[in-house]
Amino acid sequence: MSTSRDDFGIAVRSALLQKGARQKFSLFFLIIIASIIFFLDYYKIKPVNFARAFISDALYRASNIATAPFLIFSDLKTNTINLFVTFKENKVLKLEIEELKKKEFQVEFLKNQNKNLRKILEGDSKILGESTLAKVLIDKKSPYLKSIIINRGSKAGISKGMPVLDGNYLVGRIVEVNYLSSRVLLLNDLNSRIPITFGENSTQAILTGKGGDDPKLEYLPEAYVPEIDISVYTSGKDGVLIPGLPVGKTVLKEENVFVKLFSDPNQLSFVTVQLSEINEENF
């Protein structure tokens, strides 16, 4: 028992007093010094306060300098994080810009749509009789058929043969009527035949679609001298179309008279269907 206590004492004494090969002070000596400093500081002795102030000044500056690399690293870390945040923000902002662009396009589209509708409404006032506004649902380009589908059918009072106008100008007529939709045969379709009249002499002819943009005037009088830039109107001779609807102006192509339509049949978005009373037999 006493041996182990002796061993403990020897070990403690050795730890406290032993100085290593390169040690200048023993632990015991330094603990005593530290304790003295502690108590001197505790009792606020002037020289200690002065020494403390002096050491503090020097150490604070040293600490500031020593921390500088760490602060740079810290700044680097913050900047890196900011960079990633910026990347993320940039991504989000790009998406927002895309959305805004889409909205801008939508606004532009609606603006133009509104303008067109206004134009149509203004045009409507010039057209006599009841009419209904219809939106072009399908305008699928085909090399053979030139027709469009509108969102108005028999429910809206549409029947076969009714003239379809873009503003004041004739663009075609109804050839197929469903309950909620209709097909409009455009003037430039190969199957389109419209009786028209034009010029000072009220020359009669048939406007025949040729599949291209401009329909051709056929069945002209034999003594007819082709003239250009003459306005062409519906004659109403078929008993289907209202007479006097403007169609286009004459143009000459290889000694044939064609009609440059007032309304481009490829650019239709809204049309007006003239709800005239149609004699189905005539059609």
Binding site: S14, I31, A34, S35, F38, R52
Partner: peptide, 20 residues
């Protein structure tokens, strides 16, 4: 307070020396 950490560190050093 001055000397406080010195004492605690030296205590640690003392235990380490003892264990050694």
């Amino acid at each position: 307070p001055l000397g406080l950490s010195s004492i605690t560190y030296l205590v640690v050093s003392f235990v380490a020396s003892y264990v050694k």
